[in-house]
Amino acid sequence: MLTYKKGEWCEIIVSSEWDGKTIDDIVKEEWKVPKKLLHEYRMQKSIQINGEYRRWTDTLQEGDKLQVHMFIEEEYGVTPEYQDVEIIYEDDHLLIVNKPYGMDTHPSEKGGTHTLANGVAYHLQANGIFAKVRHIHRLDKDTTGGVVFAKHSLAGAVMDRLLMERNIKRRYIALVEGKVNQKKGIINKPIGRDRHHSTRRRVSPTGDSAVTRFYVSEYFSKQNVSLVHLELETGRTHQIRVHMSDIGYPLVGDKLYGGQTTLLNRQALHAEEITMLHPITKEKVEVSVPLPSDLFALLGKLK
């Protein structure tokens, strides 16, 4: 699907897949636009065909130009702050950034700074883009790797739904203590708050459903450390850290969940790959996120 940014409008060249569909079909079935945003589109006449306002029941033909008022100027919502942000993927609709170690994804209070969201706001500002900074998911402060941001409200709404439906796949790489007995497995254990510790989570029968898939790619016998790749089916706080600790293999450097090994001064966890369908074009987006220098160096030593 070809899309073009034309000022505040997005122009989509209708492909054969959309031939015969109506505007109503596109917004409700293809994009599943939330009711509030649908209402805004109707009231503000935010959708045109070939430069004309048309009824939403009118059909599209291959080659038509479907125009949507997507790129509306907004406040960033966070203070732009210069950072050397590492962009992994970017187009008019979304942004994937490699979050460094020791940085929160977004501020915990209004006016907060020194977070990834502040750096993204600066990046947008430097490129003349005035859009609210919308993170689709988060990473722990000391976890590195890919974080997805939406660049307008429609992309945000679609990707929020994709995440909820578990259709944004996130793969992580971790170093854990010990030799993991199973080559691969699924950890299906609910996670809740630890009433004895304000920031900890724990496996709890009354917690929220949490599912983690893993497979072991290497074991370093000298240091008694395993290299594990993991995929989240749910996105609970500290999910991988809690699950791996619960089955007896805490992450290297993760003191909060019982990690003893001091090979790294943080938990050895990195979001290495993100796979999803593009929120507007539905084309497959698959990105690999480079390892940070500390984890890269440690892996080199282990090998």
Rank of each mutant, 00 (worst) to 15 (best):
L2R: 15
Y4V: 08
Y4G: 02
K5R: 15
G7S: 09
I13D: 06
V14L: 02
E17F: 07
I23E: 00
W31L: 03
V33W: 02
K35F: 14
K36E: 14
L37Y: 07
L38Q: 15
R42C: 08
M43I: 15
Q44G: 07
I47H: 02
I47Q: 01
N50P: 00
Y53P: 00
R54L: 11
W56Q: 00
L60W: 10
Y76S: 11
Y82Q: 12
I87N: 12
I88T: 11
D91N: 12
V97L: 03
K99W: 06
M103E: 08
M103S: 10
H106I: 10
E109K: 14
L116N: 05
Y122L: 06
A126D: 14
I129W: 02
K132R: 15
R134D: 01
R134G: 00
G146C: 10
H152A: 07
L154E: 07
A155C: 09
G156A: 13
V158T: 15
R161H: 08
K169L: 13
E177D: 06
N181H: 14
K183M: 08
P190S: 09
I191F: 10
D194F: 02
T199I: 12
R202M: 09
R202C: 08
V203T: 06
V203I: 10
G207A: 04
G207E: 04
G207H: 03
S209P: 05
T212S: 05
N224H: 11
V225N: 01
S226F: 03
S226A: 03
V228K: 01
E231D: 14
E233W: 13
G235C: 09
T237R: 07
T237I: 05
M244T: 09
D246G: 07
G248V: 11
Y249T: 01
Y249F: 15
P250I: 08
L256F: 05
G258P: 00
L263T: 04
A271T: 09
T275Q: 03
L277N: 11
I280T: 02
K284I: 12
V285K: 07
S293W: 09
K303D: 08
